[in-house]
Simulated assay, not measured.
Amino acid sequence: MEITNNSVIQKSYKKLSIQVSLNGLSFCCRDTLSGQLISFEKIDFSNFPKIFTIENSLWKSMLDFSDLTKSYDEIVVLHENNLSTFVPKPLFDEEYKGSYLQYNTKVFETDYFAVDEMGKHEMVNVYVPYVNINNYLIDQFGSFEYQHFSSILVSKLLDLSKNDEGQNMFVHVASSHFEIIVIQNQKLLLYNSFEYQIAEDFLYYLLFTAEQLHLNPESMKLFILGECSENDALYQKAYQYVRNTSLLDVSELQKTNSFSTQENRTHFILLNT
């Protein structure tokens, strides 16, 4: 959904982007004329009372941060969960979109399935959005666009892989889960999400994925982004077993804001909306 009824006089020339999960949210406000970020915040729902529902947490977030209640020309909401799958466009049938998810997650007849069209990459992302979060935000904003966070992640990594014929693995790290993306010739070979607790969990899934795709840890390239730095145990484990391990270059993204290099890697998805 889009806001389309603003006149030129009413325009704020500002865009609000929100990335939300069951554990928290982060948001940024951008000046659409200059392209520069105006503000950025990250909110951890665990800091709220344990009795809070997700709606209570959203209410408290809006109460605490006035930027979430201002007027915007455009609002984008990114749903962060592991209930998604990518489907080549020629194989996609709108009438059976729920069936594509049944192989990697448990789905129910009552689930609502959404689709992100990724036209230039000739595929779609089928996912289950947080309907209760959407309903709450509709009451607050009136209308907005929403996507799955992996649509932004994969699309941007595909763009960055232009003119690279090698099989490259990208790992996006969050606090309790990470996503593995393997790309060759600007084509998505694999996308999957894994939960982890310790660095050994992380290493196991990383090497197992490489083995399944016949990627050689001695020659493959591994790029890490998200909540991970060179000093983290996850990076150290990966670097120990995968020779060509490095942090993703975010120098182009950094030109649009005043954040550090690591902050641009950590919030790569949100800052690319």
Score class of each variant (00 low, 15 high):
V182N: 00
T245Q: 01
G35W: 09
Y136P: 02
V107D: 09
S26G: 02
D67M: 10
D44W: 07
N244A: 01
F223L: 14
F223P: 00
S193E: 15
V76F: 06
Y130D: 15
D73S: 06
N6V: 08
I198L: 11
V173M: 03
S99P: 02
G119Y: 12
F268E: 03
L158Q: 05
T209F: 06
D64S: 12
Y72F: 12
E200V: 09
Q184F: 00
S66C: 04
E195V: 07
N47L: 15
F27N: 07
L271E: 06
S251M: 05
K120S: 10
C28H: 08
Y146K: 02
I75C: 00
S21H: 04
D73I: 02
V115E: 08
Y13R: 06
Y205T: 04
S99K: 14
N168S: 10
S71K: 15
E195L: 13
F40A: 07
E179A: 09
I180C: 00
T256W: 09
L213K: 08
L25H: 07
Q197G: 14
A174Y: 10
E122H: 12
T105E: 12
L68P: 01
Y127R: 03
I224C: 14
L189R: 09
S26H: 10
L189G: 00
K187W: 01
L234E: 13
H79S: 08
I198R: 09
F92E: 13
Q254Y: 03
K156C: 05
E74N: 13
K11T: 07
F65C: 03
P49M: 08
Q186H: 07
F194S: 05
A238S: 13
E218A: 13
S57G: 02
N125Q: 09
L188C: 06
L270S: 02
S7N: 11
T261Q: 14
E165C: 05
M123V: 00
L222A: 05
Q10I: 01
P90Q: 10
N47F: 11
D232F: 04
K237C: 14
A114S: 15
